[in-house]
Design a protein around this nucleic acid. Structure first.
Length: 925
RNA sequence: GCGGAUGUGGUGAAAUUGGUAGACACGCCAGACUUAGGAUCUGGUGCCGCGAGGUAUGUAGGUUCGAGUCCUAUCAUCCGCACCA
């Protein structure tokens, strides 16, 4: 009987559906394990072989844990709101709900091919009203909460109002604008509107003005990746920044907890570093500088107050309010021209562009508060309004960017570093003594920092300040295909929709054009936006929608209790499942999704909805699978194609060719002619009768014809082969190119496994004989290796261990049930279909999914001797088989009396013999 | 600019704690079986060398009896950077 994977896989997939083999219960006396994948955005392009990598990895882990006796939650769903569907709707008029549905169906059928153990009864889509009802609900919790810095947690707004009524805000600095100060009397005297405005400055979800990429020609707001070099991707129209009133999440209040939380979760150090860097906590000081001849002052933020005597100029962000007020009349024109230039620049360009130094003098001078020196004030794009105070003091001798700026604009540089500054490059050292620095001259920099801070605090011109690079998260999108905000503006004051009116459903629209002023398309649905109201009041809905990360910030909770209509997740159920034990997804979500969902989880924890404040206990980032493109070389000006080895003899143009019509490197010339009409008459210049293609490793993309559809692979080799091959490619975390050619090795392995059970003529050849010591050794070595490797997700080495095992059992001609059925259980997480088939064929009645994982027994693998490597001066010269019981003395003697060793040590004195028992011997001469 | 990751045969990679570099595969070479082979099996395969041997983990140093692994410097490639998800 042959290994007929098509028949086997179809049979078991149907069987598992019929028997609800993957249904998971919320109550069990087994320990729980929650294994989660980052859910996909169902794009129209479908899955390519890169997508399932993480899903296969998590599926193997989930199945492994099930065999180890855990109740495993392993769900899947769809992140179904998003820009591409809306863009497609704009172009074709098809409603995003329709195209999203179609995309999901094709995703599902592709996923089903691969044999995952998802509990599909728990599936949901973020665009389902029954799901986004709860996204809206959680948003309202954030809207109705503030962050109590003393308690270190979020609390309902009522507690804040009570505090204001009693004490004003003297004990609770306003996070939105710390200059807002008021007493209880002030508060009680404010109008409703004034009170609401102040409360807005405290809410965790709040409204503020912020800039967006506005494209006047398209009349719409663009995402960052729709803007390329200052013009729109579509049409190439200019894009400028425009201020709009938008929602934000006050994630900055959680900055410290997001940092601390990293200590108790298992993310890679690289991932933690990325998050730390994103949060960007820095210690420094704010210092106030007066502007000469004016009442204005400039507040700068610096992490290096000790360098205050090295300040040679100041730079403020071009969009800073102060610019207008301090610019002298002579400089007015130049400053305005510069501001206009900056308007066209993206934030990234502003930070990255270092070759080109730009800036403009305002004509104003600031005064150093200590020595009275007058310092020119400049504006430049490298200072961003949103970070710190939007103004810096520039110390060219200590900061390279400041130094380059000074050099470019011929600003004289003060040296406060003495000999440590060479005049050619800045020296950013934080250690050393200061020179030329008034009262801190001769001090160590660290001590000087403290001295300066205490002095500015005494003088009342500044204070110690902790800053974060992280900004509050923008939460508005001027789009249609997202969650509507459950907010109504009563005479312009936002109010929460009552919980019983949720979900606020997205109205159907026929037209996806933006509103007149760049609002979202919902602004055009006037009878939805404007609510009936009594005379003198206006009631309007919010016309923006929520961003993509809204739904994904809490989805891991919904899988636990997906059908609940009275809560986003029952507290008892979330207490049972708790944190995600293993979360697998791409590194591209390093800072966005992962930080937002960590923040939401902390807020929900603060407000008592769940019992833990970190969502993911362990995170693994799968590497990207890059495409391996194939190239053909067309002789310029002809329709002749020259093989890669001969291309240097001609002048050629490179063309990408579909990898699916290339076998390894050899082009199927017939398929090539049929591929596109302009190739129909192609002529080939062959080498050895073959057309050999060039290769290039790059991102997998339809445009480069290097995508490989898993359906095709599964059809040709089967799901089990596909799963194992994806894992065999290399470590899960590592990026690697896809090469279909190598898959045959894994396929051969499964066929070889099959032949341990089945003979083509004789059929089943499994016997009930007792296994030999050698067979048991192979078995137990494999059990140990597979268990260890699977637990630490080292699947590539596990697959090779299976190959070694099957090779050894084949050599031993082992067809014994006692050995083989254990191997099947080990293999079941990796190749579930063939394992189940053989499991039942050799006479087991229950499913292999519920078998017990084999126990490793050390007694079968003990060795009595070792083939020791023997080196002379670190160079390997020979190996000697020595008993593991031998003592050092004995080993020395055996080694020295060895012929080969004697040849190398002859006539030399032996200085030392290094003997590491069980490892190696090294003779030093 | 800031941050992250990765460099080992022709290719994907292994080496888990500083201890025999290249396991396991792909490819290639030789052979067996076969009407046939894109099936299966056997043997070989880092590089240089007839050989003894030498040499080899991006590059250059260092620590060590011993370095792919630790340290310093350097080069290259890829990824992310707040409205793609």
């Amino acid at each position: 009987m042959e290994y007929n994977f098509r028949q086997i896989e179809r049979k078991w997939q149907e069987h598992w559906v019929k028997t609800n083999a993957y249904r998971v219960s919320n109550s069990s006396n087994k320990p729980k394990c929650y294994v989660l994948d980052m859910f996909p955005y169902p794009s129209g392009a479908g899955l390519h072989v890169g997508h399932p990598l993480g899903y296969i990895a998590s599926d193997i882990y989930a199945r492994f844990k099930r065999l180890k006796g855990f109740n495993v939650l392993h769900p899947m769903g769809y992140d179904a709101f998003g820009l591409p569907a809306e863009q497609y709707a704009l172009e074709t008029g098809q409603h995003p709900a329709v195209t999203t549905e179609a995309n999901i169906n094709s995703f599902r059928s592709q996923l089903d091919n691969i044999g995952f153990s998802f509990d599909w009864e728990r599936e949901f889509r973020t665009s389902d009203p029954s799901y986004y009802k709860w996204t809206q609900f959680i948003f309202l919790q954030l809207f109705e909460s503030w962050y109590n810095r003393h308690a270190g947690k979020a609390e309902p707004m009522e507690t804040l109002v009570r505090i204001f009524e009693a004490d004003g805000n003297i004990h609770h600095e306003c996070p939105g604008d710390r200059h807002i100060r008021f007493s209880a009397d002030d508060w009680n005297g404010y109008t409703y509107e004034e009170q609401q405005e102040i409360l807005m400055e405290y809410r965790l979800a709040y409204l503020a003005h912020a800039e967006v990429n506005w494209c006047p020609a398209l009349g719409t707001v663009l995402a960052n990746d729709e803007v390329i070099n200052g013009v729109s991707e579509r049409g190439g129209h200019p894009v400028i920044k425009k201020k709009m009133r938008q929602w934000f999440l006050r994630i900055t209040e959680y900055a410290d907890r997001l940092l601390e939380g990293l200590e108790k979760i298992t993310f890679s150090e690289a991932m933690k570093d990325m998050q730390r860097n994103w949060i960007g906590k820095s210690q420094g000081a704010e210092i106030k500088f007066n502007v000469a001849g004016s009442m204005e002052n400039i507040v700068v933020y610096t992490t290096r107050p000790d360098t205050i005597f090295g300040v040679d100029f100041m730079v403020i962000a071009p969009e800073h309010d102060l610019v207008e007020r301090i610019t002298t009349s002579e400089q007015h024109e130049a400053v305005n021209a510069y501001k206009e230039y900056v308007q066209s620049r993206s934030e990234r360009e502003r930070m990255a562009e270092v070759k080109q130094i730009t800036g403009c003098f305002t004509g104003a001078y600031a005064v150093n508060p200590f020595d009275g020196r007058k310092i020119p004030v400049w504006i430049s794009e490298y200072v961003l309004a949103g970070y710190g105070t939007g103004a810096i003091m520039a110390v060219p001798c200590g900061d390279q960017r400041d130094f380059n700026f000074a050099k470019h604009f011929s600003i004289p540089v003060t040296n406060i570093l003495g000999p440590a500054f060479n005049g050619e490059d800045a020296n950013p050292t934080k250690e050393g003594k200061l020179y030329n620095s008034d009262f801190i001259t001769g001090m160590e920099m660290k001590d000087a920092t403290e001295a300066v801070i205490s002095k500015i605090e005494n003088l009342g011109i500044g204070k110690k300040q902790i800053n974060y690079r992280m900004r509050d998260a923008g939460f508005s999108r001027q789009r249609y295909w997202g969650e509507p905000f459950p907010i109504v503006f009563r005479n312009g004051v936002p109010e929460a929709l009552p919980a019983e009116e949720l979900p606020l459903e997205l109205p159907h629209v026929e037209n996806y054009r933006p509103g007149e002023e760049g609002e979202g398309p919902l602004a055009n649905v006037t009878d939805w936006v404007n609510l009936p109201s009594s005379a003198g009041t206006s009631l309007r809905r919010e016309t923006n929608t929520m961003p993509g990360y809204a739904g994904s910030s809490w989805y891991f909770l919904r899988y636990m209790d997906p059908q609940n209509d009275t809560a986003f997740c029952d507290r008892k159920i979330s207490d049972y499942w708790g944190q995600v034990d293993l979360y697998i997804g791409g590194t591209e979500h390093a800072v966005g999704h992962l930080l937002y969902s960590r923040m939401w989880t902390k807020a929900l924890y603060d407000l008592g909805f769940i019992g833990f404040d970190e969502p993911y206990k362990k995170l693994v980032n799968q590497g990207m699978i890059t495409g391996s493109s194939r190239l053909v070389y067309r002789v310029r000006g002809t329709n002749q194609y020259v093989s890669a080895g001969l291309k240097d003899k001609y002048e050629t143009d490179e063309l990408h060719v579909d990898v699916n019509i290339v076998d390894g490197l050899e082009l199927d010339t017939k398929a090539f002619r049929e591929w596109r009409s302009d190739f129909a008459s192609a002529q080939f210049i062959l080498e050895d009768g073959k057309y050999i293609c060039g290769t290039l490793s790059e991102k997998m993309s339809k445009r480069l014809f290097n995508t490989v559809n898993p359906d095709m692979i599964v059809d040709k080799f089967g799901a089990d082969t596909f799963r194992m091959y994806e894992m065999f490619l290399g470590p899960v975390e590592q990026s690697k190119p896809w090469e279909t050619k190598g898959i045959e090795g894994v396929h051969r392995f499964l066929k070889k496994l099959w032949r341990l059970f089945m003979d083509e003529q004789k059929g089943l050849i499994v016997k009930n004989d007792a296994p030999t010591a050698e067979e048991l050794k192979t078995l137990h070595k494999t059990i140990r290796k597979i268990e260890e490797d699977t637990e630490r997700l080292s699947y590539n080495t596990a697959v090779s261990a299976f190959m070694v095992c099957v090779n050894e059992l084949t050599d031993l001609k082992c067809h014994k049930k006692a050995v083989l059925e254990q191997i099947l259980i080990l293999l079941a997480p990796y190749a579930p279909h063939v394992s189940e088939e053989l499991w039942q064929t050799i006479g087991n009645s229950g499913s292999i999914l519920d078998a017990a994982f084999p126990e490793f027994e050390g007694k079968y693998v003990v060795e009595s001797a070792k083939e020791y490597p023997v080196s002379v001066n670190g160079k390997l010269r020979t190996t000697i088989n020595i008993s593991l019981d031998a003592g050092a003395e004995e080993v020395h003697q055996i080694a020295l009396s060895n012929e080969v060793v004697q040849k190398w040590v002859e006539g030399q004195t032996i200085k030392k013999i290094v003997f590491v028992p069980g490892k190696m011997i090294n003779i030093v001469i």
